[in-house]
Amino acid sequence: MAEATLAAQSKPEEISTRPSLLHNIFLRNLSAKIAALPMVLTVLVVFVGCSAWSVIYSFTNSGSLPSGKFVGFAQYERLFKTARFVGSAENLALYGVLSLVFTMVVGFLLAVLMDQKIRFENTFRTVLLYPFALSFIVTGLVWQWIMNPNYGIQKVAFDLGFTNFRFDLLTNSDTVIYGLVIAGLWQGTGFVMVLMLAGLRSIDEEIWKAARIDGIPAWRTYLQIVIPMMRGVVITTLVIVGSGIVRLYDLVVALTQGGPGFASDVPAKYVYDYMFARGNLGQGLAASTMMLVTVLIILIPWAYIEFGPKKNK
């Protein structure tokens, strides 16, 4: 902006209106461009540049430092032969499917429940949404305590005489993922509920009136009229929740540290460990590229549906 002001002052006064108009346009654009510089830099350097760098260097044999030696798909071959990575991908897939299905279904049902003209709606919404304001670290640590087999719910049940009751999800490598899912649902369903509720409320009230006049029961109205109308909100929510799942990291670190063994390891943790702890950059970058590919698999069909060629419905 300072430069622009200087330029304006150095311009001789007697110049006719035409060039000064041009000058004005130039000035105006300059200010906007300077203002947008952080955005342009973020896009070019971080989102495009850094991603491209990572993808390119995932084809090298970089160890603790990036090196230029091109090794083709060797890192990927090794990646898919590494039990820990394949396991972490499987864990994420199981977690992802379960938490996606449950957050969407439960979130929608909660929204329907909240939409029944209930009293104290604000109070209930506050209660359902507060976990979303918390850090994954906080969520993870609380549930770690609740699911602690020696002191948590299992002990309470044991003390009550239910000596066969088991709630030791986190210490059992077959069930630890379900523990993650429970904690994740506790934090995330309120968010989905709010989005779905906004979707429900955006539906024209006259649609409901028309359905009542037609004598269509409420459940059928939801199922056959309202849900199809909420397509946009549902898809947007799916994309947001889905891309959040791919990133899953904090919750695992706080709740299980990836254990027992590597039973609750996830790709994001694999990437972090290989990049920053084990000094095996090539592996870390290859794994992160696979995460990117996963997101693209979610994102591209969505972008195609939403912004692609004109819809013919």
């Binding site: 006259e206 009136k209 006049i213 004598g215």
Partner: peptide, 25 residues
């Protein structure tokens, strides 16, 4: 029978379904 300002047609159904939905139910 009632006719609304915003038409309140069921957007995902064909005209034929719109007309017949209440009767089917």
């Amino acid at each position: 029978g009632m006719v609304f300002q915003s038409y309140a047609l069921y957007p995902q159904m064909t005209v034929e379904r719109n007309l017949s939905f209440g009767l089917r139910v």
